[in-house]
Structures are given as C-alpha cells and as structure tokens.
Amino acid sequence: MNMAAEEKKSDGAVPTVPAIETEPLITARNVDVFYADKQALNGITLDIPANKVTSLIGPSGCGKTTFLRCINRMNDLIDICRVEGEIKIGGQDIYDPKVDVVSLRAQVGMVFQKPNPFPKSIFENVAYGPRIHHLVKSKGELKDVVERSLSKAGLLEEVHDRLDDPGTGLSGGQQQRLCIARAIAVEPKVILMDEPCSALDPIATARIEELIDELRENYTIVIVTHSMQQAARVSQQTAFFHMGNLVEAGKTEQIFTTPQDPRTESYITGRIG
C-alpha cells in the first residue's frame, strides 16, 4: 500500500478538524441537507485540503454522495432538495445568491459512478467543456487542449489514432478515463468523483487509482468510495459518514489504524456496512 509512503507522520495526535496542516481549499460548516422533510445530512463540518485526495467513506445511504453533490451544487437539480449551512471554496460561499452555478461547476468538475460519455466522438467528448466555456480561440488550440487532457488522463496513447471514433465504443475503464479527461479539459480546481471505479474491473480500477494519485499534483480531489482499500490506497484524508453524520475525519492512515470513534472502527473492521 502506498499510503505508508504518502504520510510518514504517525505520532498518534488526536485528529481534529481540520486534520491536515495544509490550507483547506474547501470548508464546510454545519451543512444540513433535506430531501423534502427527510434530513439526509446533519451539520457536516469538514475541511478539504488543497492538492490532496479526500475520500468519503461509509455505508450505503450515509449521505456521502449527497455531501459530494453539495460541493458543485448538483443537488440544485433535485427539486425537493434543500441545503443549509455554509460551504466555501477558496473563501467564497458557493451558496451565495450572487454565485453563478455554471461557473462554479466549471471550477468543480465531476466524475460519475457509471462512465457517461456523450454519444459523440472521443475528440468531441473532451472538446465539449472548452467549447461551451469558449476556452479556446482556434481549432489548433482546441486540439492541443483535447490531447493534453487525454494525455493527463492517461488515455491518449490508447486512442490517439482514433479520436473520431465514438466515445461510447471504448471499454468501461477507458470510458471512465475519457470522462476524467473531459472534466480536466475545463481546467477545474477541484474534481469530485462519485465511486468512479464501482463499475470497473480490478485492472481498470488500478489504472484509475494511479491516475488519481497523479492528478493530485494539480487538482484537489474528493472521492466517494465503497471500497476501504481504495480509500486507503488513494487518499490522504478520510472522512467517515454514518447515517447522515460525519463521524470522524482525519488522516487516512490514522482513520484506518487508530480510529477514535467506535462506529468508525466497526465499519473499517467490517462489522457495519
């Protein structure tokens, strides 16, 4: 496991929030989410450090995906969903009425559980974001952006000679990397990943995990995962959600070796979940 290599500090300090010394990029304070009358999240307070991978773990229905979707306001799309509390990215409240959701989502990209390439060519899939945001001025520039994004997503080598083929014709793992390339092409600051490997085989999963580790250099990544091994492998910070509450957050190593809360311990040892 490469987590041992990531963080050498293991003096057993009591984890507080914020848990990691880096300046947090995303700060959530007392975030409540309601679906109609049902409360899905209770007062979540969490700091997410820049250029680190933060994994959100917990049993199904614990609210981790709901929290993820608050960060780029995808929950706005659900009519009955109401978000209270405060989420700031880079010091700006993203639920401020002055915020343009479209610009927010351009800054906070998202990769979904099931690969969802558009029914367009590989090239057009990646070019989609730069086109709608008018990020490029010429065809040549667009081609550069597309190739750079595919290359960062580790897909260029496999598809460079068939950029005009439909994106839906790729394998599951390639499709997911295409979706990552598509997100990167908009040059976001944050990438949210909602169980990006749950539909993939172990080899494709390993490839995506490597990629996540590489992307950390330039992006802040928040990943929801059902796999504790995956959380341990790719993330530096882990937050454990249970029944709409944030039970515990801290360095990944710490959460998995010396959890403070008995519920965390039960979950990571497989007694609940």
């Binding site: 995808m74 799309l77 479209v102 989502r105």
Partner: peptide, 27 residues
C-alpha cells in the same frame, strides 16, 4: 435519454439550454 448524460453536461458547467441542444437532442 439517460439522466447521467444531462448530469455529465451540467457537471461540466453547461447551462440547461446548452445541455438540451448539445447533448439531449443529439442523443
């Protein structure tokens, strides 16, 4: 048209009408 395609487009910061014109109607 699967909701996941709309989510993908909106998640990239496309507006609703861009999503409809460029993704939904295309699909």
């Amino acid at each position: 048209v699967p909701q996941s395609l709309r989510d993908a487009s909106l998640g990239l910061g496309a507006t609703k009408s861009e999503t409809i014109r460029r993704v939904v109607l295309l699909s």
